[in-house]
Design a protein around this nucleic acid. Structure first.
Lengths: 125, 125, 125, 125
DNA sequence: GTGGTCTAGACCACG
DNA sequence: GTGGTCTAGACCACT
């Protein structure tokens, strides 16, 4: 299903959130595409339905999916200007800054950080 | 003391850890300098001694301080090559990469990230 | 439970650590096997939950178990090459050397030490 | 003086005890040789006189030194059969066995342990 | 007075 | 019900 590993400290619902949002933001899941039902995800991944529901709820709050009662959940249409994306983008930048400051504090050079970014960019293309 | 406003979200011992490690890594606290006693920090910050001890223990595990029972806790000598620093640096880079990937996934341009790094670098100088 | 008689001298959490790590390293506890909940261990052994948690935390730090909050703690898969094991093995050899040097300094012959090792080896088989 | 390093977890009086007993057992300090006065050791090593006194007291209890009130402390004559040595030897063997068991539990082969012993023996000759 | 250990008991996020 | 965090307060070994 959404292959995540339970270990690793972070709560399951958060990991699942990250994974699905990646799929949506990268376009691997198209707008209006239906997400698998909560019960199915829970069963396939061997986790609690409550956990999946929490994930879906969080995705909906952040404007990445919308749910149609009694039908299911669907991927939102995301334009570059949509509020949802803007808000998440802002959050991601804040987090990025924090980790950059932290790395610099630990003696990592700015040059190294620049290189890491370029290397990530290359891999994704 | 270590002037931080305890905020919700992250555990107290972690916030305190971050603050003290900043002071050590930046050189604001010199090698072999004595840290204030656990009880004193706890009293001044209005938190429990156990919480402070957890912080000190974590700092010791990561090789940033060393504790001499019945004497006090002291800042470690950190050379650029020390294992402690290398390990922490590695961790900070991993975290940096994750947040960079996350930001890029959210549509942040590599250019923006480069600029953020430069802006951080400038502020610190 | 983990049947040990708590003795003076060494801290409880350490004795418990030793006992559990023996079970894991010897294979008496299989990978991914669930450890009894902290509270249960504490109750059965008549000690404080915090003390047990300290043990579990230490086991996790050393890579012998992994904890999934709200689910439980589980035995790690340990391969001969795993970092966790390698690190612990290294530590155990260092300690062994120290005690061997100490014994020799006290006039114990190398022959006696060799015999002791063989005798231990026999018992375990 | 007796060069030990304060760090390293173990209490100072214990480290100092180990160091001095090594010197005595190895013959580096001859029988009836006078040990430096407590105050001098404390001053030179930058530690508390009480700590040194505790060490000397422990050495005396274990029959390694004897103290002449108002004169000082002196190294005992140790024959191979002396009770003091026998008792310490016994203790060192117990400790050796424990560490050997521990190493074996961590997957160290008996062969490796045998080799370590031989290597120690060679260095000392 | 210092750090280390331990108890008793509480609350929270998570599943 | 589970692990994680935190408080309040105690005792101990060591300096």
């Amino acid at each position: 299903m959404f292959s995540i590993n339970i270990q690793g400290g972070k709560p399951i619902y958060e990991q699942l959130y990250t994974r699905i949002s990646e799929l949506i933001l990268s376009g691997s899941m198209a707008p209006d595409e239906k997400l698998p039902p909560i019960r199915e995800v829970a069963k396939d991944m061997g986790i609690n339905p409550n956990t999946v529901q929490k994930t879906y709820q969080l995705l909906e709050q952040n404007g990445l999916i919308y749910s149609v009662p009694a039908k299911g959940s669907y991927v939102c249409k995301l334009t570059e200007e949509s509020d949802a994306l803007a808000s998440l983008r802002k959050k991601s930048i804040t987090q990025f800054k924090e980790s950059a400051i932290n790395a610099i504090n630990h003696g990592v050079s700015a040059k190294t950080l620049h290189e890491e970014i370029d290397s990530i960019k290359e891999k994704q293309q």
